[in-house]
Nucleic acid binder design. Structure first.
Length: 649
RNA sequence: GCUGUUGUAGCUCAGGGGUAGAGCACUUCCUUGGUAAGGAAGAGGUCAUGGGUUCAAAUCCCAUCAACAGCUCCA
């Protein structure tokens, strides 16, 4: 007999060699049906694998990552089995479970797998799943494994095997399909019920662009048809919120082939929105004693040689601009910091001056690879809400805390409640990859960790994710559909002050080197607005939205009154327009709902007589009439309240 | 940059070797209206660009450009 310890601390005795499946059965038939994999002493196992010693276990169901993982992993195998039947001789790379579903990288030889083939693959998978084949685990020696896959002629699997240690190699078989795999897997392919193949893409073997590109096939499966349907509905919802779609509909921004790809242009409404966001941050920054500066969009190449960026990114950037005079080369600025360093240097600085906080909405230009461009989230020209804080080493932590406050204020004001924080530190194995002294790195990393602790932020620490010049703290938000976006960032930099030989005079009358902190609460205006669009589905908060109020005259007879109302509201800084088209009210309401305007004021005979407006809030619901004045006051109050709350600190 | 898909009216899209289609938007007219689409008429396109095949190309082929989904990259 062996002792099995459950997550709640309970211990039960079972026969030696008991399986996860049997344990689940011993608890309840329902559990036995729903359980997908089992955690044994921290590893995840198949349910059919015998347990031969005292163990702590967790039974994983669909709602557990580990359970889903096994489910999708087995689904990848089912897809591979289908592919093997449909494309004889096909070779397999890797086929893991991912956050939403699974994929398999395959080499179909001379055949080409296209999007239009997905349906066929799906059909075959359903056919195979109906056979309810058992998935069988088998330990195998490295020699035998190599021999097996060499015979199959699958060079990808043999390459994988040769990197593995003997004694840890397992195979999984279902029907005619055998795959090298660590597992764990479902008991039986019949458990896979609802299947949807999603897309095909190219993917380099082992992520190396110098190696062969395989065909990657994405899919997702669910234990219930209803869950698949819900997932597909969610995908549709995501599409509806896509900032590229809404940006076009609401006329916020555009691209032009003639201007160039990845170069967004802000339309009047988008500009209005963006300027309001910028003003908001400027107000906060004024309170936090930032100084606003403006610098040119180009800089001498020597500037970037000094900063070190030219050596690292020069060949992958927009190439230098040559002047008519010989030997002069300028670069479009890919970041603002070198310019700001020069501003810092323009006069001697005393320790009393520090910290110097220099802010600029600086537009930068980066040559992103063409395949990487994506709406407003990845572009070749964007405006950072950039600032550089030059401070003494002992001020780093405090400055960090202040920046965290600013980011917090912004996220709160915009209702980004689901914020994830990531601390990116050096890869301790690979210290030579980074610029700067060991001592400085340790100091900086420690400051970040401490600052997070002080703020009670639950930050995820990622080793090896730091920039080459310093560690950083990134703020990620999820939009309403759960997709993750990186926005705000705070980065310590011990490198640029060194390269630009920045100095201040200390109390001791000696020259000292300041520390630099790069920070951008929005990240870039482009990306932030993109995320804001998706977060709000285009229904921006009243204080931000480009159009706050639209007046709908019931008929053309009341256009004059409507214009009068508009004039009065405009005089009170309310962003208002009149829909004076020759249309019925119902039509005007519909069109202005689609434009996501928060308030519609319907005016007709009654209102004109009484000097009132009939208020209809976005989305309908309750309507009420009030005087023009009362309405104006209530709108102004609503906006002021948000700004006041946000700006009280 | 790589792989695959796509490119037809301002927008969303159908069609497809023989003189270009719909809905919405736009213009004009009718209607003068009360909380999510009133009616009619009209205007609008070198079918992404450049080559090729063909009696004939928007349609087939090649290249280029751009967008989309991934991969790789990201100061």
């Amino acid at each position: 007999m062996i002792n099995i310890t459950f997550p709640d601390g309970n211990v039960r005795q079972y026969e030696n060699g008991v399986t996860g499946q049997e344990i689940a059965e011993s608890i309840s038939p329902r559990l036995a049906q729903e359980v997908l994999s089992i955690g044994v002493n921290g590893d995840t196992w198949d349910l059919s694998r015998p347990i031969n010693s005292d163990s702590s276990i967790v039974l994983y169901k669909w709602d557990d990552e580990e359970g889903k993982h096994a489910y999708w992993h087995s689904s990848a195998h089912l897809m591979a089995e289908a592919l093997q039947e449909l494309y004889p001789g096909i070779k397999f790379g890797i086929g893991p479970a991912i956050e939403n579903g699974f994929y398999y990288d395959v080499d179909p030889g001379t055949a080409v797998i296209k999007e239009s083939d997905l349906q066929n693959i799906e059909k075959k998978m359903i056919e195979l799943a109906a056979l309810k084949e058992d998935i069988v685990r088998q330990d195998i020696s490295k020699t035998d494994a190599l021999k097996l896959f060499e015979e199959k002629g699958d060079e990808y699997k043999t390459e994988l095997i040769s990197d593995l240690e003997d004694g840890t190699i397992t195979l999984y078989t279902q029907g005619n399909f055998t795959d090298l795999c660590r597992g764990p897997h479902l008991r039986n392919t019949g458990e896979i019920k609802a299947i949807k193949m999603l897309s095909v893409a190219g993917a380099y073997w082992r992520g190396d662009e110098k190696r062969k590109q395989l065909t990657r096939i994405y899919g997702i499966t669910f234990p219930k048809k209803k869950m698949l349907d819900e997932y597909l509905v969610m995908l549709e919802e995501a599409k509806k919120r896509d900032h590229r779609k809404i940006g076009k509909e609401l006329e916020l921004f555009m691209f032009s082939e003639t201007v160039g790809k990845g170069l967004p242009m802000w339309l009047p409404k988008g500009t209005a929105l963006r300027l309001r966001l910028e003003d908001f941050l400027k107000k906060i920054q004024r309170k936090y004693e930032y100084q606003q500066v403006i610098t040119p969009h180009i800089g001498n190449k020597l500037l970037y040689i000094t900063s070190g960026h030219y050596a690292k990114y020069g060949q992958d950037s927009f190439q230098p601009i040559h002047t008519p005079e010989e030997g002069e080369e300028y670069l479009l600025k890919p970041m603002n910091c070198p310019h700001h360093c020069e501003i810092y240097k323009h006069k001697p600085r005393s320790y009393k001056d520090l910290p110097v906080r220099m802010a600029e909405f600086g537009t930068v230009y980066r040559y992103e690879q063409s395949g990487e461009l994506h709406g407003l989230t990845r572009v070749r020209s964007f405006t950072q809400d950039d600032a550089h804080i030059f401070c003494r080493p002992d001020q780093v932590k405090n400055e960090f805390l202040k920046v965290m406050d600013i980011i917090n204020i912004i996220f709160k004001a915009l209702d980004f409640t689901n914020v994830e924080v990531q601390i990116s530190l050096r890869d301790p194995e690979n210290k030579e990859k980074y610029i700067g002294s060991d001592e400085n790195w340790e100091k900086a990393e420690q400051s970040i960790v401490e600052a997070c602790e002080e703020k009670g932020l639950k930050a995820k620490v990622e080793l090896g994710e730091a920039a080459f010049y310093g560690p950083k703290l990134d703020f990620m938000v999820r939009d309403a559909i759960g997709r993750k976006w990186q926005l705000g960032t705070i980065q310590v930099d011990y490198n640029l002050p060194e390269r630009f030989e920045l100095e201040y005079t200390g109390e001791d009358n000696q020259k000292h080197r300041p520390v630099m902190i790069h920070r951008a609460p929005f990240g870039s205006m482009e990306r932030f607005v993109a995320v804001l669009i998706e977060h709000t589905a285009g229904k921006f908060p009243l204080w931000l939205t480009p159009e706050q109020v639209v007046i709908l005259p019931v008929s053309e007879k009341y256009n004059d009154y409507a214009n009068e109302v508009a004039k009065k509201l405009d005089a009170r800084d309310i962003r208002v327009s009149v829909d004076d088209r020759n249309e019925k009210v119902g039509r005007k309401i519909r069109d202005n709902e689609l434009k996501r305007i928060p308030y519609m004021l319907i005016v007709g005979e009654k209102e004109a007589e009484n000097g009132e407006v009939n208020v209809r809030k976005q989305g309908g619901g309750e309507q009420y009439s009030q005087s023009i004045d009362d309405f104006a006051v209530s709108i102004n109050k609503e906006v002021e309240k948000i700004l006041k709350e946000a700006l009280t600190f």
